[in-house]
Nucleic acid binder design. Structure first.
Ligand SMILES: [Mn+2]
Ligand SMILES: [Mn+2]
Ligand SMILES: [Zn+2]
Ligand SMILES: [Zn+2]
Lengths: 138, 138
DNA sequence: TCCTACGATGGACACAGTCCAAGTCAAGAA
DNA sequence: TTCTTGACTTGGACTGTGTCCATCGTAGGA
């Protein structure tokens, strides 16, 4: 995903080795990592990268819309680089695995005006919960 | 909601003043309080109640299905006593206000089998996000 | 090559939640 | 009514997650 690096350069970002490494970790569209997981993988490539920098970079990527923040449980937020393809999430209640899913309908269209209470509703996130095949066996 | 107290007694709970006060705070169906907010309101009624007891009691109420845990953001979980009426949530992105909403369709029916990846899907939670009337003005 | 503003660093801090050993008390027994 | 006992409560220590800040380093333009 040097696409991402290009877009960041285009936005005037300084290209530091730390930012390159964080972008590299998020590469591949199917990860939903916590900040500490990102830090661990980044540190494998660039040992002295700090937690603060990982948090800073993730925060910047989120506000640029390049990464989505997902709160699937009350624990650590997860960072989702699949930001350019609208989707929802299926979470295993047992092991926490997260999968991208694409429901047939946009749930926004199913919230009638009388249920909006004067809000300007901008988005809807659906979290499906259940047991993944592995956890269902056990 | 002495209904709730009755049900708890029926389940063999010891009726302590702490549990009574937590139940009283959650009374009324339209609150979505954090644990610390519950603790603050409970302490107004019973000054020496501890945080640990509030957390214990909330956890017990959740596992009995009397209260629902809601994670609307990456911050503190909220506790929702409206557990016997299935519903979803509309959250103000600005001030965090939470309202109960009832969409026209159950989002579970819109997740086709090919999008379930072998999971046994048990539930779907929708979080609608937008600006509440007050925050939209400003 | 040099300058400097932007970014990185680590450590302190804040907040949400869990755990535990010790003390207390609700409720059944007598 | 009093006694007994194990369920419950308590405060504080501890963990995990995230933020902040003063200082240092360096990317990238002049
Ligand atoms: Mn995703
Ligand atoms: Mn609710
Ligand atoms: Zn699983
Ligand atoms: Zn608002």
């Amino acid at each position: 995903m040097s696409d991402l690096l290009d877009r960041l350069r285009g936005r005037g970002w300084r290209m530091t080795s730390q930012r390159r490494v964080v972008a590299q970790v998020l590469d591949g569209d199917h990860v939903h990592l916590t900040a500490d997981e990102v830090h661990a993988r980044a540190a494998a490539l660039l040992p002295e990268i700090s937690r603060a920098t990982v948090y800073n970079t993730l925060g910047e990527l989120v506000s640029l819309g390049e990464v989505i923040e997902v709160a699937t449980d009350g624990r650590a937020r997860r960072y989702d680089p699949n930001a350019h393809h609208p989707h929802h999430h299926l979470v295993c209640s047992e092991c926490g695995t997260v999968r991208d899913v694409h429901p047939d309908r946009d749930p926004l269209t199913d919230l009638p005006a009388r249920e909006r209470f004067g809000f300007t509703v901008a988005a809807a996130e659906v979290t499906y919960r259940g047991l993944c095949p592995d956890c269902a066996k056990a």
